[in-house]
Write a protein that binds this DNA or RNA. Sequence first.
RNA 1: GGCUACGUAGCUCAGUCGGUUAGAGCACAGCAUUCAUAAUGCUGGGGUCGGUGGUUCAAGUCCACCCGUAGCUACCA
Length: 684
Amino acid sequence: MNNEVRQILVTSALPYANGSIHIGHLVEYVQTDIWARFQKMRGHQCLYVCADDAHGTPIMLRARQEGITPEELIARISTEHQQDFANFSIDFDNYHSTHSDENRQLASTIYQRNLERGNISLRTITQAFDPVEQMFLPDRFIKGECPKCGTGDQYGDNCEACGASYSPSELKNPVSAISGAKPTERESEHHFFKLANFEPMLRQWIRAGHLQSEVANKLEEWFEAGLQEWDISRDAPYFGFEIPGHPDKYFYVWLDAPIGYMASFKNLCDRSGLDFDQFWGRQSKAELYHFIGKDIIYFHALFWPAMLSGADFRTPTAIFSHGFLTVNGQKMSKSRGTFIKASTYLKHLNPEYLRYYFAAKLGSGIEDIDLNLEDFAQRVNSDLVGKVVNIASRCSGFIRKRFDGQLSAELAEPALFQEFINAGQSIAEHYEKREFSRTVREIMALADRANQYIDEKKPWVIAKEESKEAELQAICSMGINLFRLLIGYLRPILPATAAKSETFLQIPPLTWAELPTPLLSHAIAKFKPLMTRVEATQIEAMLNDSKEDLAARNAKQTKPHETRTEGHLAKEPIADTIEFSDFAKVDLRIARIAKASHVEGADKLLQLTLELGAGDRRTVFAGIKSAYTPEELEGKLTVMVANLAPRKMRFGLSEGMVLAAGPGGKELFILSPDEGAEPGMKVK
RNA sequence: GGCUACGUAGCUCAGUCGGUUAGAGCACAGCAUUCAUAAUGCUGGGGUCGGUGGUUCAAGUCCACCCGUAGCUACCA
């Protein structure tokens, strides 16, 4: 074993301060936390830092909508995030914010140094501008009709209906998503990071073992396309840091977000006396690892090393990317109740279950992992409750009742104990390589071995024989010692269960180095259940609760809640007054959704067969796949525009439209009539 | 459309450099057992390895094409 103490700095991606932590986020924090805890348990100096990512247009707008300052918003969200993390035993050594003095200074330093070395250029670009809000509009905040297929309400970058990509200026009838005004074009001077200056360095870097091979493959694309300049500035109004010497110009949030890793660490240094340069200086010998989702590889594997190198800081030792989380094989969905917030999960289930399940599925690759809820319950119950915890439970009774809690003075089966110790090496290697699923598999094989041992020795038979007291004590002590090793190996994954087990065993926190020393002639405490089974009803309740979360929020939106309503009205102002005759032209009818199905090849569409009674059936393509599944729509009554001119769409002819409210994505709500309405009835 | 991955038992996944009869856990069935939170042990059934074609003495593994899934496709956090 390598006894050298390593200096390791680990980060997880910074959660955006615009929403709650959900179980998808947790994959990454759990993965990082397990790895960091493992390193600490091995005796290394491992520091795990993170922060809230607090800047950008969405945060500015949300704060405005809520009628508070961005600072108030991010403070509130930060508290909430940290509470969720603490509940899941995510053990940060420091949690900070990108909206901090440390980050302002570091961002400025990094910018300044790159500027001095000719890595920043200034160029005037033309951008969409909202004349009402007096602000430039990011693509995401411009909506309009797709220039190719004519579908309305599309974002400025690509069409959700036909998949075409285009620039915002090509949209037909564009409107600002903030004010509803028609955007104008305006020129502005922007700051660009000249990524191409780093091409030789990056080409070498991405093939030097800092990245997973599939990630490096993917990045080749960018070199083939040619490295473009990266726009790192935004115009006021913007919530972020003003660029030194350039009033009303701000650093783009993605510039200062990764710098937040450094800032959080700097903040830790200032409080604890650690040496910042020892970790971030060009000559640093410390290891630096970023755990990230595969969606933000570009920022971390190209821009970030380039920025650092251009500012005379060290580059990361490695970037560890992971895949996304699906639930029951599908993307998390609010309507299915599988968009589960961390706080909702906690109301129903033990966080250790999820940590274990994620660990059991995580490898070092970037494939997505699936939370199959049935599998989740079976796996936790069988592995943790049935196998591991059960070993302590089935041995402790004898030790407690017959020997007053005292373990025997010698190991009954030193060879078996040694077998468990030997397995530790490969378990450690798998931890180190982030092959947690292999780690778990090996540990569970040992747990099976321990149960087999007890079964073989049959302590319950021996207990009935006289003069076999010593043998009984030895067998059960052996079982307890095997349990101790299993818990030791599982400790990075199950910190809370390990802590409870340490209380039961009456020992200090386990370290890897102590594992080979068995507990002999030692008193243990009374056994209390360390973990209980997952019940199907708990999972059911959690899913319902997630759905209710959504329902509650919807109710809040429809209620005349000042800020929320103002938000919607501000985004989409009430249209010009019309005459009744204009309204009468629209023939609205109650329709029954007779059939709903997915459309092959369509990302956003569902194909609906609407029944108006008397054999009148219409095929309608509706862009509501993001919010509804076909199953939940079938049989429902809704309201449709029955006399809309049929429109030829990519997948067929659409003969009308269903009415729905909401901004899109998960937040789409189709209208349904009150009880008693029948298909075909006219809405007037 | 292009690109990066993925597709193996009902479920979740292993399967290394191509090499005997494709493995594990869960679930299921039978038996044993009662120390343990209905936990444990033993035995068993279950697979056209997404499809088609190719390379090879030999293909789950390599190549091509197709189908399906996920993601990325740069001013979106």
